[in-house]
């Protein structure tokens, strides 16, 4: 099988507390998966583990052909794009423009194409710190896309967005998924608004995967399992 993400018996501790417990997860190349679960269930920790940011106590993690648990992170960085759950707002007046931020991903043609794809040409010279929540997310997504990653990990991009901006953002993610076929893992608790492209839902609870099922099956019983 063409696995893009493959976790086997993964355990992660943060500050000596077990946070991920025996995670087993296979995601195929090009799949669009949503991860749901209560706050504190380990969703962010799972994404950060896939990115090699957390020490893996036991088990193996492979992402985009890189042995993450074996410390192969340099190549991993080139193949993954990440939008953190929250980006710390300690720069009330920050000098970075939207263009500066996108260029942290890539410069030149690659950046230009990402900007075109997300239709954000008109905000490039504005300061990032003064953009709306939705515009910020688009700029960060453009930054990630400009690096042409095969895997995109999005951690609750709805947090600072109203429903209309969130729908707008998700439709951009779906467009890019359709065009480039990236593997997408979207953490969201908005399970009543699953993107069309998402065909599989994983539910986490207390650091373990408590459900892993197809979209349709999930929709039938959603209210009972997440909340």
């Amino acid at each position: 099988m063409d696995e893009c993400i493959d976790c086997a018996h993964v355990n992660v501790k943060l500050n000596k507390t077990p946070v991920l417990k025996d995670i087993n997860l296979k995601i195929s190349r090009g799949e669009f998966v949503c991860v749901a679960g209560r706050s504190g269930s380990g969703k962010t920790t799972l994404l950060r583990t896939l990115l090699g940011f957390n020490k893996i106590d036991s088990g193996t993690v492979k992402v985009a052909g890189c042995d993450v648990s074996g410390g192969e992170t340099a190549a991993l960085r080139k193949r993954t794009g990440y939008l953190p759950q929250s980006i710390e707002g300690n720069y009330s007046i920050s000098p970075f423009t939207a263009r500066d931020v996108i260029n942290m991903g890539a410069k030149g043609e690659k950046a230009r194409l990402a900007v075109e794809e997300l239709k954000i040409g008109d905000i490039l010279s504005r300061r990032f710190s003064t953009l709306s929540g939705g515009e910020k997310q688009k700029v960060l997504l453009a930054m990630a896309l400009s690096r042409r990653p095969g895997v995109i990990l999005l951690d609750e991009p709805n947090l600072n967005l109203d429903m209309v901006s969130y729908a707008d953002f998700i439709s951009l993610v779906e467009t890019t998924h359709k065009a480039h076929g990236q593997t997408i893992v979207l953490v969201t608790h908005l399970t009543d608004r699953l993107p069309e492209a998402c065909k599989r839902v994983i539910v986490m609870g207390s650091g373990a995967i408590t459900r892993d099922c197809g979209r349709d099956e999930f929709m039938k019983t959603a209210g009972a399992t997440v909340g």
Binding site: L51, A74, R77, P84, I87, V101, M104, G105
Partner: peptide
């Protein structure tokens, strides 16, 4: 410049770009 700029912007994002 590029590394410093990325870290001053956001360490988590800097790390994700290598």
């Amino acid at each position: 410049y590029e590394q410093i700029s990325a870290v001053l912007f956001n360490r988590e994002i800097a790390a994700s770009t290598g």
